[in-house]
Design a protein around this nucleic acid. Structure first.
Lengths: 216, 216
DNA sequence: CGCCGGCTCCCCCGCGCGGGGGAGCTGTGC
DNA sequence: GCACAGCTCCCCCGCGCGGGGGAGCCGGCG
């Protein structure tokens, strides 16, 4: 193969610009497409057939985990390299389960970024040293590793609801956002509370932040 | 003057690369220096005498607010443009008090960034539309009270209550914890909501996490 | 085919929460 | 002396939230 084709998915234009600048400077790498949300990933990949997708975790509508899952489910051959600001285990576990091939922290240097891209393009998986180290540290601190598994048990709709809860939305607001009935939202909220072992929405939101399910 | 001299201060290399790429593409702008922490700002400014400093808020050792304050106190003529991920008025108020000349959200487009740089370079101040809008939205919820207040104006007791709210405690639990009556806690909670412009405890807790008042 | 999990919507019920008042007590500052 | 801010506690009131059930629809799986 001549060039490694790279697609960028991040909601922050500045990050995309930075990645494009870094990647464009490498003779063996080429940026073939960009998207600002996970919802646009299937179309982007279909259009540009990238070898590697650099995927942000936190995005407004569809996050990188879900987008990765969608890619894998669609049988795409594109390798997914997940970009994350913080290396917390919830993201790592979820993304690995979703089928990601590696991790990069956003505070990585340009050298680390291009190295990571070449690594996953070769078919190897990449868990960036720093991410692994922080992952281990966190696991020692968290009590019994319950949280990640609890949150992992949530259905995709329940995750949607929890994400919106974590922005301070009320049940009626969430219902409007997701275009479903209020009763449906109440059901999902009840499921989230039951599965996470929390008593009310505030505790669920606290768990979401502390576990890194959402980033503050 | 020929070129607007710009210095970049951000702990994330990718953001710096992105900004450098965006700014370098403009004929009237030139990047004269970079730093990865607020602690290096005084030296950077002394060496490169920039017209505009693009300053991240959250940095590992010395944050952008403190670095801005240091610059102003040192009598620097450099204009400071603060970069923030979330437009919460706590950062806005603090940075304005410290002497910043404007704000940019990290999710800004390259066009918005270069426009912001030129604006503050002309000596005008810049409160980016989106930041202002979110700020205004928050303040519409508060009754009366003129200027931006937020977390900085909370009394020490109100901070205690907010900290406990941010652990998922209910009002009765907070009352037991602080050894005061339930009604007292309700009063403090009401004050916190009023001063932060939030509607319910969940929104207040979200604000506490996103602003870094508590750490997740 | 039937079973089951996920998503959707519906009912009733109790209670904690938040909004709106008021009030007494301290310590500080003019 | 007085004013004021902060902490404490009290009242009433409306409503959103959470708990407890049930039900229909769909797709996947054995």
């Amino acid at each position: 193969m001549s060039h490694v084709r790279v697609a960028l998915v991040d909601d922050e234009p500045l990050i995309r610009s930075g990645l494009a600048a870094v990647i464009g400077a490498e003779p063996d790498l080429v940026v073939v497409g960009e998207a600002g949300d996970g919802a646009d990933v299937p179309d982007l990949v279909a259009r540009t057939s990238p070898d590697v997708v650099l995927m942000d975790v936190r995005m407004p509508r569809v996050d990188g985990i879900a987008a990765t899952r969608a890619l894998v489910r669609a049988g795409s051959s594109a390798r997914v390299l997940v970009l994350t600001t913080f290396s917390n285990d919830d993201h790592v576990v979820q993304a690995l389960a979703a089928g990601a091939d590696g991790f990069l922290l956003k505070r990585s240097t340009p050298e680390e970024v291009v190295h990571g891209i070449r690594t996953v393009a070769r078919g190897e998986s990449l868990l960036f040293p720093e991410a692994v180290r922080e992952l281990a540290r966190r696991h020692l601190l968290t009590t019994g590793a319950g949280v990640a598994t609890e949150l992992a048990r949530l259905t995709s709709r329940e995750r949607d609801v929890l994400r919106l809860m974590a922005t301070g939305r009320s049940n009626p607001e969430i219902a409007a956002e997701l275009v479903v009935g209020l009763e449906t939202v109440r059901t999902h909220v009840a499921s989230v509370l039951a599965k996470t072992g929390t008593r009310d929405r505030t505790q669920a939101v606290v768990l979401a932040y502390r576990s890194g399910f959402v980033t503050g």
